[in-house]
Write a protein that binds this DNA or RNA. Structure first.
Lengths: 355, 355
DNA sequence: ATGGAAGATGAAAACGTTTACAAGCCGGAT
DNA sequence: ATCCGGCTTGTAAACGTTTTCATCTTCCAT
């Protein structure tokens, strides 16, 4: 059904070179042959093979992007931005998710290199020790980091200053009178972002003369937030505010708090990181450090394309973040009120009543 | 840096055929050559060119998937499922978003066909009149619909029964005593799903002896939900329940309601469609028709792969949905209480207070 | 008339693979 | 000694393009 350039040439009674010239508009053709080629293409339904082209051109006009997950809107948004710019420049985009697994990550890079992408953007688990990143470097293909901070000066990285941002947010929480602030992270071990944010958080606490407690790590299980909240609430010196390493986690935590009968922010304040759109839809709105996710994806693509066309890698600058106060961050309660755990059934979230 | 099969052959002192056989394990080799080839590959950092392979094999082991948007978790999840299965079968996935634009949609199909994908999965705006779908058919490449219902019997489509699901959900709302139920849709014109769901909704109303009002269509602007809610609340015979054509819209609507001082579900109930995870995290939890998004993506991929390996297209069956009752659906208020519009500032959602 | 420029087209090589076919070598059976 | 078969390897064609170089017309200026 498809047909190759040879079929077109045969049908139009000319050589394949002429057809190629017609398709690419790379040389003037007589009106007559032009018309015959047009007719032949239409009749056959010819579409140039990108793979034949790539082979000849030694360039695929394809970009790869690897993110931990598409389920987290902050990554989905950045991918959308990346793709928008890529498409506008005539590039196709290959997307892969690592599911926060460095092994999968490296595998994805291998796949993309096998596909001869012209460049890669990646959000790795840990930029400082990433096999995937090493493979990219070894391949000599242009690459930019997204959300990760650069592992060395000449690396191009599109990200906010996680330490500073987390520090500022923590200061905002402190300004509300909170003194016992816990740091919760979903994938602490598997995310250098989480660790940097913890650093910023710890810095702010120390500066305020407080001793930063170790991060509370949640694993992947669905009831992890409920378990964590149960433990936190039961603690004798329970925190009055929770700094969650990202917004999705923060929303889950708020849900768990409500199921445990705690009011946000009255009993406990919660702040997140990322600034996802849904955080603005819920009540109370989620206080968060907003990153320009979509713009970051766009920027990553622009930078990557520049790199591909031979630009030198400028030292990368941080993008601006925004400390977004919201309803979930309230003043610290003077005396921690007892939390009545009644009227709620933690754990069960579906089928509340039957019709 | 990369090097081709010729470089490896030269370095190993053998022919490219032998190297190829080593790489693919397609013929027994003497221990000696095997070792020499291994060494050469390691030294050069050789990685077989997928594009050379594809050209020769006339198959790319690549699949394309087109969804309206990655920002909506219901699509992001299905893409994740799709990709999981694809990867497990050794396929690479090309992803594109149409942004609900049939033109972009068709363009994406063109691109994918140019890339010689072995098959396509797509969620189109309107399966009954889709240029994109027509192009796929004309190309002769295997294709499956995802979320769309089949436009004719032999089409493979992975979806729930939107009409029935919406009808059942509407019946559940009716069972709560609601009589004035409005239907809100974000992209009514650009989504056959929305229209099918409206049909199910209308059917249930008619069956209950009620006259279904026309759908309330919101455009893309950020303040559309607020405007719509303002209008709905002001209406003299204001609805007591809102059926939103998808969950993202429902969450936005709930936010707008709260900003207008209406309590959900006390003053107004809201139900959605899709069953996204975030709907379960918010309070009240979102009543919704849950679709198994991830499983649907997996299923689409499985079906597509079957089609590619020559299976005949069985008539497609609907996947099961789940009517998920949640806190956002409450009993109909006996007498619609006046909604005090005080204490809220509709429209402004950021920077609630300054630190 | 003649030379040459300009315009239109074709032949063929190259890109990196896989694979059908052929060929070399060795050992064992005749 | 000869032949055959099995094992290992090589040669070359093919996949669909783009592009260099060359060729062939025309037509105009001389």
């Amino acid at each position: 059904m498809a047909g190759t350039i040879h079929d077109v040439a045969e049908r139009a009674g000319c050589s394949i070179a002429t057809v190629s010239r017609y398709v690419n508009g790379t040389a003037p053709l007589s009106l007559e042959t032009r018309e015959r080629i047009e007719a032949a293409i239409a009749a056959i339904g010819y579409r140039p093979s990108e793979i034949g082209r790539s082979l000849k051109r030694q360039a695929t006009r394809t970009l790869g992007i690897i993110v931990p997950s598409l389920t987290n809107p902050v990554f989905a948004d950045s991918v959308t931005g990346f793709q928008t710019v890529a498409r506008a420049s005539g590039y196709t985009v290959l997307i892969a998710t690592s599911e926060y697994d460095p092994e999968v990550e490296a595998q994805a890079v291998e796949t993309f290199l096998g596909q001869s992408v012209d460049g890669l953007a990646l959000t790795v688990c840990d930029a400082m020790a990433s096999p995937a990143l090493a493979v990219v470097d070894a391949s000599g293909k242009p690459g930019v980091l997204l959300y990760n901070q650069a592992d060395h000066a000449s690396r191009l990285a599109v990200t906010v200053d996680n330490v500073r941002a987390a520090r500022e947010m923590t200061e905002a929480v402190l300004a509300k009178g909170h003194r016992r602030i816990a740091f919760l992270a979903g994938r602490f071990a598997a995310s250098d972002r989480s660790r940097l944010r913890y650093r910023g958080y710890a810095l702010a606490l120390v500066e305020a003369g407080l001793k930063p407690p170790p991060p509370v790590e949640l694993d992947f299980l669905d009831d992890a937030p409920d378990a964590a909240i149960a433990a936190l609430i039961a603690a004798e010196n329970r925190p009055t505010a929770l700094f969650c390493s990202n917004d999705v986690l923060a929303l889950a935590i708020i849900g768990a708090l409500k199921r445990h009968g705690a009011q946000v922010p009255h009993d406990m304040s919660v702040v997140g990181f990322d600034g996802i759109a849904l955080g603005q839809m819920v009540e109370p709105t989620l206080a968060s450090v907003a990153q320009p996710a979509r713009r970051m994806g766009e920027r990553a693509c622009t930078d990557l394309l520049a790199l591909i066309s031979g630009a030198h890698s400028r030292p990368s600058e941080f993008l601006g973040h925004e400390i977004r106060l919201g309803g979930s961050l309230g003043p610290a309660p003077r005396i921690p009120a007892p939390i009545r755990a009644a009227g709620s059934n933690p754990g069960s979230t579906t089928q509340q009543e039957s019709a």
